[in-house]
């Protein structure tokens, strides 16, 4: 029995080690939008405490048909949104998804999302790691 528990503990800790990709997501939120809005945006801070660069390659959510990686930028006074195939989270560093910069963009769902609702995202990294994120819908400012 003791041996069994020990094995269980070992397997549990090794499972944790695999799941612990060194990625930590903070302050994930979706901007509340007018009911007629066709597109929504989500923001978060992705931290990477590992010694290897991590590359975010895909995001999915059961609440949206698809989620796109985007970046807004202003060049010579003109604002544009650019599709991103991937977003780099540098080793021992972080990337900030925020208004006017990197963001997730998704078509608004049938049911309107209001401040206080939550949205679940699965972030997939190039090394195969998946990270679950729960984002809160917020009315800004």
């Amino acid at each position: 029995m003791k041996r069994f528990l020990m094995a269980l503990a070992l397997s549990a800790s090794s499972w944790l080690a695999v799941a612990d990709s060194g990625i930590l997501v903070e302050d994930a939120w979706v901007r509340e939008a007018p009911p007629s809005a066709r597109m929504l945006a989500a923001y978060m801070i992705i931290r990477n405490s590992s010694d290897r660069d991590r590359v975010l390659v895909d995001v999915e959510s059961p609440q949206f048909s698809h989620v796109m990686l985007h970046k807004s930028e202003v060049v010579d006074g003109v604002a544009r949104m650019l599709h991103q195939d991937e977003i780099l989270v540098p080793a021992q560093g972080s990337v900030v998804l925020e208004p006017g910069s990197y963001h997730l963009m998704m078509p608004a769902p049938e049911t309107h999302l209001s401040a206080g609702d939550t949205v679940d995202f699965t972030l997939t990294f190039a090394n195969g790691d998946n990270v679950q994120v729960q984002a809160e819908v917020r009315k800004k400012p």
Binding site: R31, A33, S36, A37, R38, M39, L40, A41, H70, S72, A79, M81, P99, G100, H103, M105, K140, P141
Partner: peptide
């Protein structure tokens, strides 16, 4: 434009503030 979820709502919120 209304299909713009990032820059346009940010600017409209700014004007509202």
């Amino acid at each position: 434009y209304t299909h713009c979820p990032d820059v346009c709502p940010t600017s409209l919120s700014m004007l509202a503030q």
